[in-house]
Nucleic acid binder design. Structure first.
Length: 371
RNA sequence: UCCUCGGUGGCGCAAUCGGCAGCGCGGGUGGCUGUUAACCACUAGGUUCGAGGUUCGAGUCCUCGCCGAGGAG
């Protein structure tokens, strides 16, 4: 179980195509994982997710622990059964909430004392509690409870968080018992490549079935992120999946695949979709813009998603302006399909041996500015 | 015919004693990267119904007119 098989490797770049075997099916990498924080990928039904090609989605330990509570999910037969999702689930540990809810918490070596963002109630999250919750949720992949620092961080701040992340990783590993659930370690170290390399090596001594790179794409320039990936990816074991947490812009994905990353997740396709920002092969468009009022073409000519096959930009703009729920659904669907397909395309190019051309073409045609 | 209330940005409404005309929605634009986010930010937009008057100064007070709502007959 959780064997990671490399199907093909790009001879020029660091890109690889692989297969990760889980209790809920084989996951083909590289891939993008939609985020379903509260046991729901916002605006999407499980059926639609399957149809657009999602192989594994995220759930969140912190959010599900607070509501409805791990006991209820467990009583429902686990998260797969509770939300009726038959394929893979990866649960984030709550480590990101250490960062995103930093106004509501206090960190010590033991764990994180925090106040619920829902009702202010006090809680104490520890590596053991996070793993216990994740085991009860029954995800296919659990994540170590880590400390994700805000950037920019001083070398000292970063080191303290990194050391804590390592200590917590060991505690997670020791506490974790479910054999039908993989536990991934998370590399921290802010933008210090020496810390990143050290963190990776020390995690590898603990021997995790997969390694994540956390604490990136939180506001730093993308060149900085690529610099860290260039430093870390070569250190990580070839035969284990690599997961870049929280990354979701198409150019970030392709650049990271070229650097040897296998898995990604991001709220961007769903959140930005709800907010009218849509992905195309040339860049992003903002469907709110008056320019699309009479644009009767699809979001993207080359996209095969349900929204692109059936609706126009003018109609989608209209739905957005009206605040219709269908707007959120179609836009989320399109963005998720786009990223899922982008990774599927990258995978097939790696297998065919033509990834370098695909990479070059994508990067040159992708416009960072909105089109 | 008389009485009462009202008329302020596209729409709905604020504005203390007469003292810098604001807010919400709508419009335009930008942002969002392991979700506290169907969210947030910025921006444009005014002959305060009209004509006079009082005053240093009027959306605000006075006179007349126009328009709307309600009431009396």
């Amino acid at each position: 179980m959780f064997e990671f098989k490399i199907t093909a490797e790009c001879p020029v770049t660091g890109a690889r195509a692989g297969e990760l075997f889980t209790p809920h099916g084989v996951i083909e990498t590289p891939l993008f994982m939609p985020v379903g924080t509260q046991a729901s990928v916002k605006a999407m039904s499980p059926h639609e997710l399957e149809e657009l090609g999602a192989q594994i989605i995220l759930g969140n330990t912190y959010h599900l622990y607070l509501r409805p509570g791990a006991d209820i999910v467990e009583a429902a037969g686990g998260l797969h059964s509770f939300m009726n999702w038959p394929r893979g689930i990866l649960t984030d540990s709550g480590g990101f909430q250490v960062f995103s809810l930093r106004q509501l918490r206090k960190i010590t070596d033991d764990g994180v004392e925090f106040r619920s963002h829902i009702n202010g109630s006090a809680h104490f999250m520890t590596p053991e509690l996070s793993i216990g919750v994740q085991e009860r949720l029954g995800s296919d992949v659990a994540m170590c409870f880590d400390e994700c620092v805000k950037l920019p961080a001083t070398e000292e701040t970063s080191r303290v968080a990194m050391e804590r992340t390592l200590k917590w990783a060991l505690r997670c590993k020791k506490f974790h018992t479910r054999e039908d659930q993989a536990l991934f370690g998370i590399v921290q170290g802010a933008l210090y490549s020496d810390q990143r390399i050290e963190c990776a090596s020390r995690l590898m001594e603990m021997d995790f079935p997969g390694y994540a790179i956390g604490g990136l794409s939180v506001g730093e320039p993308k060149e900085e992120m690529y610099r860290i990936l260039d430093a870390v990816a070569p250190v990580l074991p070839r035969g284990r999946p690599r997961y870049l947490m929280g990354v979701g812009m198409p150019d970030n994905l392709v650049e990271s695949v070229a650097r040897g990353v296998d898995m990604f997740d991001c709220v961007l396709p769903t959140r930005n979709g709800r907010n009218g920002s849509l992905l195309t092969w040339r860049g992003r468009i903002n469907i709110k813009n008056a320019a699309y009022e009479r644009d009767f073409g699809p979001i993207d000519e080359q996209c095969g998603c349900y929204a692109c096959r059936n609706f126009t930009r003018a109609y989608l703009r209209h739905l957005y302006k009206c605040g219709e729920i269908l707007s959120a659904r179609l836009c989320s669907l399109h963005n998720l399909y786009f990223l899922t397909n982008l990774m599927k395309k990258a995978r097939s190019e790696i297998i065919k041996g033509s990834f370098p051309d695909f990479y070059k073409n994508f990067v040159s045609s992708w416009l960072t500015e909105d089109i």
